[in-house]
Amino acid sequence: MHLFGYRLPGMSSLLLWGALWEFIGQAKVTFFIPPLSKVLSTLYEVLGTVAFQNALKETAYAFCSGVFYAVMIGIIVGILMGKNRLIDELLLPWVNVFLSAPLTALVPVLMVLFGFGMKSIIITTSLFAVWIIILNTRAGVRQINRSLVEMATSFGATPLKAFTKIYFWAALPEILGGVRIGIIRAVKGVIIGQLLISIVGFGALFELYSANFLMSHFWAVLIVLFALAFSISEFLAYLERRVSYYAAKR
């Protein structure tokens, strides 16, 4: 964007919003919003604490495992659904139901089934992410050019080779789109899991800070979390752009 003839760098609007935040904080409108400068200095303090580092570790572990399972299961099930009519008919209604279902309501059931530990949190994370990955992969496989499949068959590709050499790559732009949205949902999943199932990780920090009205701590952790989720999403968007050169030409 250009303003008064000067080119503004990306995201310069954040400065404006940051200034507004600082102003409201300094004006002491509500205890709920401390000044941004205070939040940032608290953030710096918090980053070094053991509590924060443990929370980060626990959350990262649950998040990464959850996303890993969601991506693996999502891609495989999605390709199978796209290729096989029977599997598609069997699973599609469930995928659509779970995609739109309020999954938070399912978390207590998961607690009964899998206990109050890390396992339930990982499953919750996967459950949030997996459906959109399945649906997107399925869509990617279904739009695959018929003659590309015939080509692979005519050169003697085994089903496994066709899977890894043709279907996966042909569906990759859609798969990455699905993974990106899935990961954004997984961030929700992991935090909800940590808040509802057992108070650990970032969930525990939120609980602790908000219960004790430590608002600048609360905001500091929130900023960290938002920044992490945003960076992951942007990284995947970058990967998506890398393959978009052939997305339109399949």
């Binding site: 015939e150 080509m151 050169f155 790559w169």
Partner: peptide
């Protein structure tokens, strides 16, 4: 087989496309 719509893999280079049959 030679296909009417070429049936090339858009994500692969010319070299990879040409060697696909041999790879299989």
């Amino acid at each position: 087989f030679v296909f009417q719509d070429f049936a090339l893999m858009p994500w692969a280079s010319v070299l990879k496309n040409v060697s696909f049959g041999l790879e299989m």
